[in-house]
Design a protein around this nucleic acid. Structure first.
Length: 696
RNA sequence: GCGUUCAUAGCUCAGUCGGAUAGAGCAACAGCCUUCUAAGCUGUGGGUCGCAGGUUCGAAUCCUGCUGGACGCACCA
């Protein structure tokens, strides 16, 4: 917490109270004090026009003068923290006591460690965040990456601010497409079961593509798919519980989430799947009976989820619960009937629709053949989640192309709340459905345009990361190694020994200077190779994730390989590099053991580097408000920008002032300062799902 | 046609909910490694904030219109 800003706020509130007898609330006071655009104007400023809201009158300049005089009269109240006050045009500018400011900030970071900036909210909210949501039996493409990293980062941010977060992955596991999959599996007799064992998702995807192709020429393919899906649907809904009972059975604990799929046949225990063994021989057992197809579907889903989990794990993403559309589909019919019966929905052109004020497009909740639709499943899902988690807020991280869908969904809960009185013979449904209005948020994001492989195909996430990793490895390998440094030193020394001015000396010195080009012939050991692999992988992941988080989420991103694969400037690797640079500096100082949060230290404004240290501290002190602002706007990019700025401050400092070689008393406080930079940078990298590297 | 949304440097983007002189990074050019990691740092050039009005002390930011792009508008998700 920035005690300087806080005290300044109180100071101004008191002045307003004393002079104009107006009370200013805390959030209003927050807006009163701002940061000037340029440091030469001061550290905090008060714009006179804001004072017009609190009883001050006249031109901004004269008001500023009036306020300035009041501030001056009572300056003794804040002179412990502030050096001076200035008036400039319509602004009153405040200059902090820089020495005090720097040591306060550094002390606080040192004392709080990784908890620095962590919030304690007035009210701890339960926030459900629904993100990623891929379709099963399809490869995880980069299209899902944006939702995944934005969702994960928001989850981190809400949790960091002290809220209870439930991360849900809502899988597309239902619909005719799965009928297609089952049909394909049963139709084709040349499935390679060895390959299926090794990479099931790949085989499933190939089956899907194959039957999709066959549909163009063979009408029976689609028919079979539809028939098999109907079989599956009927089988699942045959044993489902009533909606009321099911809602009543859900508890309010985060616990283990929903079962991944359906309610009907209950026990979805992990072990159950191990018994399902597919082979050429028993294949028909699964294709002929409804129960067999049902198991087949469960197996496909399980295999897909395992594959997703593997990928998520590789980029550090995890969920509290995996849900499937199938679960919601079971209850879609119940919802439809309640709404129709009470006149909340009506039939139009054979389909069931709900009309919502302010939205022209009618919300379609059931097809004319009675089958459920996306929207009706989302209605069910929200109600189930309310019953299960009692959330205060639910965030859907989904592309902006679905804005209409979510407006309709949110609108329907408004309608449900309004018409709650009409729903009489239901307790649970009525209760939960009418609670939801106003708690749903669509966090939309722009499209990624022009994303394709160099050959023009859809890009799979893993290939994407591998491309970035290779680039990182290339950079790592061209970096001069210790051996080469020594070598170039020797050449340099040898050159110097030659008579000055001779051609030979010049050549040798040049070759030493071009040490980047000196390659070592030495074979790398296995552990060095592993080191390079794991480092380059983390850098690659960092580059890819940061690329999706650095811009405001709503803007469409023009995808460009060169931009993603450039690791210079405003990139994830730049941030990772900065952290490892601090690490390296700190360990080389040899003073690590004498640095701790309790050490006595101070900075003098006479030191040559003082102003830069002050700027760094100022940046650090803005961390918490950056996190808050990221949360309020559901916008991780606020943190990306903040992190880049802090890293840039450090790198400038690093370039301009040399630490090692100075007296320990000079180095120690600065190491503590750098350690607080590192602490904050690491916090931000973690919030942004970017791997932290010890060394690069 | 209706709706949503966007337009800022050659390119990719910031711009602290209307405030002080519109900022970064790439790319270009010129510099900085025998000294703590050059994935870094310094400097130069580059802008009528799409166009036209309006609102007021004050507009890249709010309102209206226009132009141009993206997305969405009934049984896909």
């Amino acid at each position: 917490m920035d005690i300087f800003k806080e005290n300044l706020q109180k100071f101004i509130i008191n002045i307003i109270k004393k002079e104009k007898n107006v009370d200013v609330s805390k959030p209003e006071a927050e807006k009163l004090i701002k940061n000037p655009p340029d440091d030469s104007f001061g550290d905090y400023c008060l714009a006179a026009y804001y004072m017009l809201n609190y009883g001050f009158k006249g031109k901004p300049e004269t008001v500023a003068e009036e306020v300035f005089n009041f501030c001056k009269m009572q300056f003794n109240k804040i002179e412990r923290l502030f050096d001076k006050i200035e008036i400039k045009g319509a602004y009153v500018n405040f200059f902090v006591n820089k020495e005090k400011f720097v040591s306060e900030v550094i002390k606080e970071v040192a004392a709080s460690g990784s908890d620095y900036g962590r919030g304690v909210p007035g009210k701890r909210l339960t926030v459900v965040i629904d993100f990623s949501s891929p379709n099963i039996a399809k490869p995880f493409g980069v299209g899902h990456l944006r939702s995944t990293v934005i969702g994960m980062s928001l989850s981190n941010i809400y949790a960091f601010c002290g809220h209870e977060v439930i991360k849900i992955n809502y899988l597309g596991d239902f619909g005719t497409q799965f009928g297609k999959l089952i049909a394909a599996f049963c139709r084709y007799n040349d499935i390679d079961f060895n390959e299926f064992k090794k990479d099931p998702v790949k085989v499933l995807y190939e089956l899907y593509v194959r039957i999709h192709k066959d549909e163009q020429t063979d009408a029976t393919a689609l028919e079979e798919a539809k028939r098999r899906f109907k079989t599956l649907e009927d089988f699942i809904s045959a044993n489902k519980p009533g909606l009321e009972d099911y809602l009543g059975s859900l508890n309010f604990k985060k616990s283990d989430g929903f079962p991944v799929g359906e309610t009907g046949n209950g026990s979805e225990k992990e072990e159950g799947y191990k018994e399902i063994k597919l082979s050429e021989k028993n294949k028909n057992d699964f294709c002929e009976t409804p129960a067999g197809q049902y198991n087949l579907w469960r197996l496909f889903r399980k295999l897909s989820i395992d594959e997703f989990k593997r990928i998520y794990k590789s980029i550090g993403i995890e969920f509290d619960a995996y849900e499937g559309e199938a679960l919601s589909a079971e209850f879609s019919n119940d919802i439809k009937e309640i709404l129709l019966e009470r006149g909340i929905a009506k039939i139009s052109e054979g389909a069931v629709i709900v009309e919502i004020k302010g939205i022209k497009a009618p919300a379609l909740i059931a097809k004319s053949d009675g089958a459920s639709l996306y929207l009706s499943r989302d209605i069910v899902t929200a109600i189930l989640r309310m019953a299960k988690y009692n959330f205060d807020k639910m965030i859907y991280v989904v592309g902006s192309e679905q804005a209409l869908h979510f407006n309709q969904l949110f609108g329907i809960f408004g309608v449900l709340k309004e018409n709650a009185g009409k729903i009489k013979d239901s307790k649970n449904f009525k209760h939960y459905a009418s609670m939801i209005d106003g708690r749903l948020v669509h966090v939309k994001f722009g499209r990624i345009i022009g994303m394709s492989t160099r050959k023009g195909n859809l890009v799979f996430l893993e290939d994407y990361i591998e491309e970035a990793r290779l680039k990182a490895q290339e950079k790592l390998e061209e970096r001069p190694k210790i051996l080469e440094n020594t070598l170039s030193n020797e050449i340099y020394e040898a050159g110097k020994e030659l008579a000055e001015g001779t051609e030979g000396a010049e050549t040798l010195i040049n070759s030493a200077e071009g040490r980047v080009n000196i390659k070592s012939d030495k074979e790398l050991t296995e552990s060095e190779k592993e080191q390079i692999y794991s480092t380059s992988l983390k850098v690659g992941i960092g580059a890819v994730i940061f690329n999706d988080l650095k811009t405001r989420r709503t803007t469409d991103v023009n995808f460009n390989w060169d931009n993603v694969l450039s690791f210079e400037g405003q990139t994830g690797p730049y941030l990772q590099y900065t952290v490892s640079r601090i690490n390296s500096l700190m360990s080389k100082s040899g003073l690590l053991n004498s640095i701790n949060e309790n050490m006595e230290f101070s900075f003098s404004k006479n030191d040559a580097d003082f102003n830069d240290i002050f700027l760094i501290s100022k940046q650090i002190s803005g961390f918490q408000s950056a996190v808050n602002s990221a949360m309020e706007q559901n916008e991780p990019s606020v943190l990306s920008s903040f992190a880049l700025e802090l890293a840039s401050h450090f790198n400038k400092y690093y370039q301009n002032y040399r630490l090692i070689g100075n007296a320990p008393d000079y180095i120690k406080p600065r190491l503590l300062m750098l350690s607080s930079v590192r602490t904050v940078l690491i916090s931000m990298l973690s919030l942004l799902c970017i791997p932290v590297l010890e060394k690069m």
